[in-house]
Simulated scan of single mutants.
Amino acid sequence: MTNPVLAVDQGTSGTKALVICPERGVIGSASAPVRPRFGAGGVVEADPAELFDSVVDAGTRALAEAGEPAVAVGLANQGETVLAWDPDTGRPLTDAIVWQDRRAAGICAELADREDELRKLTGLPLDPYFAAPKMAWVRRELTREGVVTTSDSWLVHRLTGEFVTDAATAGRTQLLDLDRAGWSAPALDIFGLGGERLPSVVDAAGEFGTTTAFGGELPLTGLLVDQQAALLAQSALEPGTAKCTYGTGAFLLAQTGGVPRRSSTGLVSCVAWRLGGRTSYCLDGQVYTAASAVRWLTDLK
Rank of each mutant, 00 (worst) to 15 (best):
T2E: 10
N3I: 11
V5A: 10
L6F: 02
V8N: 09
V8Y: 11
T12N: 01
L18E: 03
V19A: 02
V19M: 09
R24K: 07
G25L: 04
A30R: 01
A30M: 03
A32R: 01
P33R: 02
V34D: 01
R35M: 01
P36R: 07
G41T: 07
V44L: 14
D47Q: 15
P48D: 07
E50Y: 13
L51H: 15
V55M: 10
G59K: 12
T60K: 01
T60R: 12
L63G: 02
A64W: 00
A66R: 06
P69C: 05
P69H: 05
P69R: 09
V71G: 12
A72E: 05
A72T: 06
V73Y: 02
G74V: 04
L75S: 03
G79M: 08
E80G: 06
L83V: 07
L83K: 13
D86N: 14
D88Q: 15
D88C: 12
G90T: 12
R91F: 12
R91L: 14
P92K: 14
D95R: 15
V98F: 09
W99I: 10
R102Y: 13
A105S: 15
C108Q: 15
A109G: 10
E110S: 04
A112L: 03
A112F: 03
R114D: 12
D116S: 15
E117W: 13
E117P: 13
K120P: 06
T122S: 07
T122A: 05
Y129V: 12
Y129A: 07
Y129S: 10
F130A: 11
P133N: 10
K134M: 12
K134V: 08
M135T: 12
A136R: 15
W137C: 07
V138E: 15
R139G: 11
E141G: 15
T143M: 14
T149E: 07
S151F: 14
D152P: 12
L155A: 02
L155D: 04
V156D: 00
V156A: 05
L159A: 05
L159S: 03
G161I: 01
T165W: 01
T165N: 04
A168V: 03
T169H: 08
R172M: 11
R172G: 04
L175F: 05
R180C: 00
W183T: 01
L188Q: 06
L188P: 02
G194H: 01
P199I: 00
V201L: 03
V201Q: 07
V202F: 05
V202D: 01
A204P: 08
A204V: 15
G206F: 11
G209R: 10
T211Q: 14
T211Y: 14
A213V: 14
L223Q: 11
L224F: 14
Q228V: 08
Q228M: 09
A230W: 05
L231M: 09
L232Y: 15
E238N: 01
T241K: 15
A242Y: 04
C244D: 05
C244P: 04
T248H: 08
T248S: 09
F251E: 12
L252C: 06
Q255M: 05
G258S: 15
V259Y: 08
R261W: 13
T265I: 07
L267Y: 14
C270G: 03
C270D: 06
V271A: 08
W273K: 09
G276P: 10
R278I: 14
C282I: 02
A290Y: 11
W296T: 00
L297M: 07
T298I: 09
T298A: 11
